[in-house]
Write a protein that binds this DNA or RNA. Structure first.
Lengths: 162, 162
DNA sequence: GTCAGTGCAAACTTTTTGCAACTAC
DNA sequence: GTAGTTGCAAAAAGTTTGCACTGAC
């Protein structure tokens, strides 16, 4: 699906959501949705704020960003993650299901896909719980940091031997 | 394993960790470890702080709690979660692997176990990544909130019809 | 005796809130 | 017209940091 198509579709979904729930269709809300669907990967509120400032077609306050993103989460158009310090968000419509690898050393987050894993999670029977979405976070050390650490250990050992 | 045994074992593991990494073995650190291993389920820094104040055998500052908990995470004795506002922690030694269900309405977190799911995750091949641990968060609505919501919808419809 | 670790308070960051002004309906 | 939204600034909540003091080694 093309980017423009996706944007149109999510705008429509959002409109329906706003109507159903008796919220107003303000230009701020659509501008935020549009900007989010221009971003690839994760972003936090501050990044989104700067982005919207720079693109200068619309200036919204942080408070509005926080308010709107809650609506978008409820409309299932955005999902929220919480690795690192600040909350991270990402668009969720028309996006492949993916999992997250988080390096505990450098904090780098990478995504990967795995169908077996995905179906295992989706086929899990939940008791008295209505699934909305899920997040799998795998913590560990990325290849880069593993190598850096090994190097450091060697250095330390050399020092001790001196 | 009995609680006391577990506490002794983790104290030993911690001692080894501190020795290996050239950290001091302060009474504060052991008191914190002990308190954490008295807690069932999740806790945040503030809860831990109050707990240690009340048990009055040891008073530690929040700063020390933050410092120590990083050591405990590195020693693989504690794991960190980030649902809700503040970081949540839990002991990890001698604890069954479990997954988390998070209600997006009321924020309640429940744990569940599922072997098929667990082995699916553990058998996933990761490229250039050294796994330490993982967290699966399932978001949705708990039975209670689903029922409360249905009730609310019925009420709203009645109002509209009037 | 030395320096890592601690307590305290201040600083910082992220998110929430109160309120006046605005505007979608 | 009026209530839901917005922007702003202040407040709150969680975490980090600087510094003097303490105590583990």
């Amino acid at each position: 699906m093309e980017t423009q198509n996706v944007k149109d579709t999510v705008r429509q979904i959002f409109t329906e959501y706003l109507n159903t729930n008796g919220h107003r269709k303000t230009p701020e809300r659509y501008a935020i949705l549009d900007t989010i669907y221009s971003i690839d990967g994760h972003f936090d509120i501050d990044t989104l704020y700067s982005l919207m400032l720079n693109q200068e077609k619309f200036r919204v306050s942080r408070a509005t960003l926080y308010n709107t993103i809650i609506l978008l989460i409820n409309a299932r158009l955005v999902i929220k993650h919480q690795f690192g310090n600040s909350s991270q968000y990402e668009k969720s419509y028309n996006r492949e299901t993916h999992h997250h690898q988080i390096c505990m050393q450098c904090g780098k987050v990478t995504e990967f896909q795995n169908e077996a894993l995905q179906s295992a999670i989706e086929n899990t029977k939940l008791t008295r719980f209505q699934l909305s979405h899920y997040s799998l976070y795998i913590y560990g050390m990325c290849g880069k940091c593993v190598r850096a650490n090994n190097k450091k250990k060697v250095n330390n050992n050399n020092k001790k031997e001196k």
